[in-house]
Amino acid sequence: MAHPAAQSPTMTAAPGAGLPPWARYGIIFGFVSAASIALWAPIGVSGTYPRMIGAILGELTPDYAAANPYLVRMGSVLKPETFLLIGLLIGGFIASRFGRARLVARRLEMVHPGEKTDFARYRDAFLGGFLIIVGARIAGGCTSGHIISGMTQLSVSAFIFAAGVFASGIATAKLLQKGGK
């Protein structure tokens, strides 16, 4: 006779398996974000981008890099935050290739109705990527640092940033949908 734990499907199901994915993964991410603050620091991503620029300019024009107050303030690209980004790359790779619910992105998917060619999707991704880093660095953080970590810590800035992001984000997404049809 088999061990009871081996034959009962309810025993092998993960806790919270009855919840929708957004709730299950949100609860797990809440624990990860809290563990990060307990062990190291709040999660944050966008500051690593100017640190990469600092590393590049430090090689090309060391005098300029040493004199730019922003690059000096942001510090070295060897800070732990850079390793968080490496982790994101690895996590995305692993999750897309293993497990039952794998969702590998095989084809380029268009996002807005106006994107009729691959070039249009790459152009929108590039321009949007430019704007999210400029915006995040003006505000001092992005979705992870300002919204997730900021609201978790009850920071007032997080609520102002989120209000700005969703106001212009919803307006832009709706305009791009109308304009492309």
Partner: peptide, 12 residues
């Protein structure tokens, strides 16, 4: 910064 970010977030 949030308003600029939102435009880029929706576009990309």
């Amino acid at each position: 910064g949030g308003l600029v970010f939102g435009v880029g977030f929706a576009l990309s």
